[in-house]
Amino acid sequence: MGSAKKTSAAPATKDRRDRIEEMRRAERARARRGRILIVSVSTVVVAALIGVGAWAVTKSGADDGDDGGKADAKGASGHFTYAKDGVGTWSGKLGRTHVTKKVAYPMNPPVGGDHNPVWMNCNGDVYAKAIPDENAVHALEHGSVWVTYNDKAADGDVKALAAKVKQTPYSLMSPVQDQKDPIMLSAWGHQRTVKSATDPAVAAFFATFVQGKQTPEPGASCTGGLSR
Results as ranks from 00 to 15, higher is better:
K6T: 06
D151C: 06
S60C: 14
V99D: 02
A130Y: 04
P109Y: 06
V45W: 06
V145R: 00
R33F: 07
G112K: 01
L226G: 06
A204D: 07
A162N: 03
K84F: 00
R228H: 13
T193L: 09
L172D: 01
W146E: 04
T97N: 10
I50N: 06
H79S: 15
A76R: 03
G51H: 01
A136H: 02
R228E: 13
L49W: 12
Y170F: 06
A153I: 08
S186R: 07
D181V: 11
V46Y: 12
S227R: 12
T7Q: 10
S174Y: 08
N150Q: 07
G51R: 01
S221R: 13
P169Q: 05
R25V: 14
R32V: 08
K14C: 13
G34E: 11
A29C: 15
Y82L: 14
A154D: 09
G78H: 04
T193R: 11
A31Y: 12
V147A: 04
Y82V: 15
A104N: 13
G68Q: 06
R30Q: 11
G61N: 11
R96Q: 08
H138W: 03
C222P: 10
K6L: 09
R24N: 10
M107T: 14
A54V: 15
L37H: 11
A54K: 15
E141A: 13
K152S: 08
D67Y: 10
G75V: 01
I20P: 08
V202Q: 00
R30H: 14
R32Y: 15
Y82T: 13
D125L: 05
L185H: 00
A160F: 04
A56R: 14
T13L: 13
T168N: 03
Y82N: 13
Q191A: 11
E134L: 04
V126R: 02
T43A: 11
S40W: 10
V176D: 02
N135E: 02
Q179M: 02
T148C: 01
D63R: 09
K93H: 05
A56N: 11
G219S: 09
V137C: 03
A203I: 05
K102A: 11
D15I: 15
E21F: 12
I38E: 15
I183Q: 00
M1E: 09
A31E: 12
D85H: 03
G88Q: 07
V165R: 01
E21S: 11
A197L: 04
Y149Q: 05
S227T: 15
L37R: 10
Y170E: 00
T100I: 07
P110T: 11
S227C: 13
R25E: 14
V202Y: 03
R17K: 14
K84H: 06
G156R: 09
P200K: 08
D114G: 06
R35N: 12
L94E: 02
N121R: 07
A203M: 06
K5A: 13
S144G: 02
P169N: 00
T100M: 04
S8N: 10
M1C: 11
I50Y: 02
A162H: 04
S186F: 08
S186H: 14
A128N: 05
D66H: 14
